[in-house]
Design a protein around this nucleic acid. Structure first.
Lengths: 124, 124
DNA sequence: CTGTATCCCGGAAGATACTG
DNA sequence: CAGTATCTTCCGGGATACAG
């Protein structure tokens, strides 16, 4: 990873932007347990709007990370499930999650310290 | 990670949004090699604007991931370096990078296939 | 129940010019 | 060289209403 603007780094960066969007990780984690219906996902992630849940799932489906199964009953039923590739994503995301949990306190303190320094600099 | 809207998941999600922003990973990777000056970073990441590089570095500094050293000569010289915590971030990011490189082709094909299906659905 | 279609707003980020 | 300031543009995402 010597070359920060190499195709490889761009690839990684664009993937991180996808995974790092507002809802993707929450949906992937929620689907980690197994198949879920649309309405179940909404219940488990109360803060997501209908629109954004749909868009997030569509993008995941487009990338081959989630499969979508429609049962054309009335009312209709749609089940979402991680694909094999989707499940494999949980491992590296888990590594990052572990890192986050381990360092979140340190980061919070660093931020407070930085902001405090900014304030006293402004006061001067 | 049963509960998708638990504080832990929110923490992870917010970290991913930070790491997943447009420039952070490129800067962290570029600093992986060692200390770099502002102008060196600009050269290595040609697509970043001066403004966004400054903002990205400030955020990383605020989080305690990057240290900033000013040498008040004329012209001034500023060196950036990953902190210990910043270096530790490279490992989980590397895992995600490996995943990305391994699956990028599959994802690209999945997208093409999905988009093609969308088109033919629209044609009907 | 599972979407799609619109409208709208705030923040992210580019371009440009200026400063110590 | 290493920023800051300002203006503007663009897009993610929320709210709402409607549809199959």
């Amino acid at each position: 990873m010597k070359d920060a603007h190499s195709p490889a780094c761009r690839t990684i960066s664009s993937l991180l932007q996808r995974v790092g969007d507002k809802w993707t990780v929450l949906v992937v984690m929620s689907l980690g347990d197994g198949t879920k219906r649309f309405s179940e996902l909404r219940r488990e992630i109360p803060s997501v709007s209908q629109r954004m849940l749909t868009l997030t799932l569509r993008n995941l489906e487009r990338d081959g990370l989630v499969s979508r199964t429609v049962t054309p009953t009335i009312p209709p039923r749609v089940d979402y499930e991680l694909t094999e590739m989707g499940r494999s994503l949980r491992e590296p995301v888990g590594s990052l999650a572990d890192w986050a949990l381990k360092h979140v306190d340190t980061i919070d303190r660093a931020r407070e310290r930085f902001d405090a320094e900014q304030d006293e600099a402004k006061a001067a």
